[in-house]
Design a protein around this nucleic acid. Structure first.
Lengths: 132, 132
DNA sequence: CGGCATCCCGAAGGATACTG
DNA sequence: CAGTATCCTTCGGGATGCCG
């Protein structure tokens, strides 16, 4: 989940060549959208607001429980808003906040990197597999 | 681990506003350096090659087992190289490849984002906590 | 419809001990 | 020093079922 501890202190300065600074290493990642569904959900919401049941369609296989709890975590972190409409049957819409939208900058950059280097990784893997 | 399935198809095109494309959503993240230690290790290696025991120092609390298996996974993916020196006592050095170094571009961008928006996330969390 | 409660499982990863 | 081997705990997340 992106709840508990999502964002890191994010030390921008590189480590000094001959000294490891333990304090710089408290957290593994600048953010932890790395769980199974968070980033998927955010991407689904990029075009615009969606309902709970609409999200379940592209998120093939996600259970209500996991979707609900992931959405709540993202809401707590201020990445999206939850709007409950007083209707019958009930309707709830989820929408990205400005903060949520701002994530797409760095994340899309990461996607570009992956697209450009995926073949190199695959090649390395194939080599490693061949070597045994 | 960053082994099994690290990199994604990374569809650069945003989803169409009124249609969810399931094929775009097979994978959660463009890459999966999101495990507990991989990114930490890569950062330790950015300044230059390091030995196994040198890495354990800043990676406070990592066990030999986990460090070894994470390093092997990163090596398989072509992000770093392992060099064994025929000495006594034995010595092994780990060093980033060009591919590994190239990761710092997008990842540092992500760090910058986190640094700029961390306060907003914390504020959102505080609000959520206060609301109950 | 939009969840929450409950049970359950596999895999990541920590602790500890041992080896070339 | 640089690991491997073994055991054990934790936890994300799937399955199922119920509720307002």
């Amino acid at each position: 989940m992106s709840s508990g501890d999502v964002f890191a202190p994010a030390p921008p300065a590189p480590l000094p060549p001959d000294l490891f600074d333990p304090l710089c290493l408290e957290r593994p990642m600048p953010f932890k959208v790395g769980d199974k569904w968070s980033w998927l959900i955010l991407r689904c919401l990029e075009p615009g607001p969606r309902r709970f049941s609409e999200l379940k369609v592209p998120l093939r296989g996600i259970t209500s429980k996991v979707l609900a709890q992931t959405l709540r975590a993202l809401e707590r972190d201020g990445l999206l808003t939850r709007t409950e409409f007083e209707e019958n049957p009930p309707r709830v819409e989820y929408e990205l906040t400005a903060l949520g939208h701002s994530l797409f900058g760095p994340m899309n950059a990461a996607c570009v990197w992956a697209g450009e280097h995926l073949d190199q990784v695959d090649a390395a893997r194939a080599r490693a597999a061949a070597a045994g």
